[in-house]
Write a protein that binds this DNA or RNA. Structure first.
Lengths: 161, 161
DNA sequence: TTATAATTCATACTTAAGTATGAGCCGTTT
DNA sequence: AAACGGCTCATACTTAAGTATGAATTATAA
């Protein structure tokens, strides 16, 4: 029975071909009796094989079930991430809309980590003055007045994780 | 020329069909001469139309480019859900482990919203002094020294969304 | 080449945040 | 009743954060 399942498609094809050749032979004998129906016969063959070709093609080239299952599984995998640590996808549209520069973004990320201006300055090898400038520009661009607000807004906009 | 482009596929199909019927007719006349080649002729028609069927089918039922783009867009839509608001589940174990009181938690939530001490005081009908005390206790319990750190840690512990 | 924007830094000032300490009030537990 | 913890508030101080302004440098686009 497992054998039948495994070669199911092959068997179907074989039987179909056998039946078609049988029809061909049958038609041949009928042709001997009614001589005038040749065109009808040829047309029938043409139509039959045309349909067979279409059917075969759909069977062979149609997206296989296995593939579609794999694709579904891929989507499921993505959904699994919803409850797991969420993979961060940067909202580039929001980022460009806010007009935040790359350096400002760096500073913003460090602010979000809870670092002080001094720590950020040390981390980026910059002076505290520079950090303050960047932060002031960030606040203007994010339309906020405090670093906690900046973090909150940036997270909402998916600019930072 | 736009007309040609628009109906390109249709024209190709029409010409193909016309050629095939021409072949059929040609074959018919040849059949009158060589009578014995009937089987070959029928087989040829069968093969021809089989191939035509396969070709047609591939043309018609092949995954269209537009569809594949739509499918890609669908995947993007799913990714949007990943970034969508994740249902918050409070980690009660972590909360009790930190020994944070209900009032302190309230303050912490407002800090996370980006509010200043003054705003929090106004929101909870308390003095700024009280807020500062709560925050100092919060920092001690969360083992941090800055409010941004407190928010970061509390979010990691799932004490706040 | 000039204009523009990003990046850097500084000074001076204001305000908010954070620290330390003490104390009063209230409900629960021992 | 006394002790305890949570909540409240205050004062005084230190430090960090935030604001405003100006300026030099550098790379890139017009």
């Amino acid at each position: 029975m497992i054998f039948l399942k495994k070669y199911k498609t092959l068997i179907i094809y074989s039987i179909s071909l056998a039946l078609l050749f049988l029809l061909l032979k049958l038609g041949e004998y009928r042709l001997l009796i009614i001589d005038h129906s040749f065109e009808i016969y040829a047309g029938s063959i043409a139509l039959l094989f045309l349909l067979l070709g279409i059917w075969l093609s759909r069977r062979i080239f149609a997206p296989k079930k296995e593939i579609s299952i794999i694709e579904t599984e891929k989507i499921v995998e993505k959904q699994v991430f919803i409850t797991a640590p969420v993979p961060f996808v940067l909202n580039e549209k929001a980022l460009s809309a806010t007009d935040i520069s790359s350096r400002e973004l760096e500073v913003l990320e460090l602010i979000a980590k809870g670092m002080s201006n001094q720590e950020i300055a040390g981390s980026l090898f910059l002076s505290v003055s520079t950090i303050k400038t960047h932060i002031a520009n960030l606040f203007f661009k994010l339309e906020v007045t405090r670093r906690t607000q900046a973090v909150e807004k940036a997270k909402k906009l998916s600019i930072i994780p």
